[in-house]
Amino acid sequence: MTWPLVATIVGATIAADVLQSVEMKRHGEIRDFRPGTLGRAVVALARRWPLILAVFFMAVSFFAFMTLLSVADLTFAVPATAATYVFETILARCYLKERVTWKRWAGAALVAGGVAMLAL
């Protein structure tokens, strides 16, 4: 049951992160961190359906993570779900059209390699 839970977490996290990145960029940079302004920003963001969908996927990921933590070590559960790095960097390049420089590719590859070693 461990690996299906990991796959659920990875799939849901990828969907949530890509949706969040698109919608937060569309909203624009948050510059004012006063509680009132932040509250208004949250209310405005809560009306965007892709962001609602992102929160839904985050919830799926969270409950699967809770279940995983009840049967596996923290030092296994967290690194094992980092397969998201590779997929999300590819999506950032192909779907979000971010300029992924060689340093970012190399950095993502090192992180993915390191995460794989943590999971051993």
């Binding site: 992160d17 890509v18 969040q20 990145s21 937060m24 960029k25 909203h27 624009g28 940079e29 948050i30 961190f33 963001l45 998201t84 790095y85 999300e88 960097t89 999506l91 950032a92 390049r93 979000l96 971010e98 992924v100 970012r104 950095g107 993502a108 992180v111």
Partner: peptide, 14 residues
């Protein structure tokens, strides 16, 4: 979410 409002996803992840 706040960080993603100005930084690239391919930066935030690593």
């Amino acid at each position: 979410m706040a960080l993603l409002s100005w930084a690239d996803l391919s930066y935030v992840l690593p």
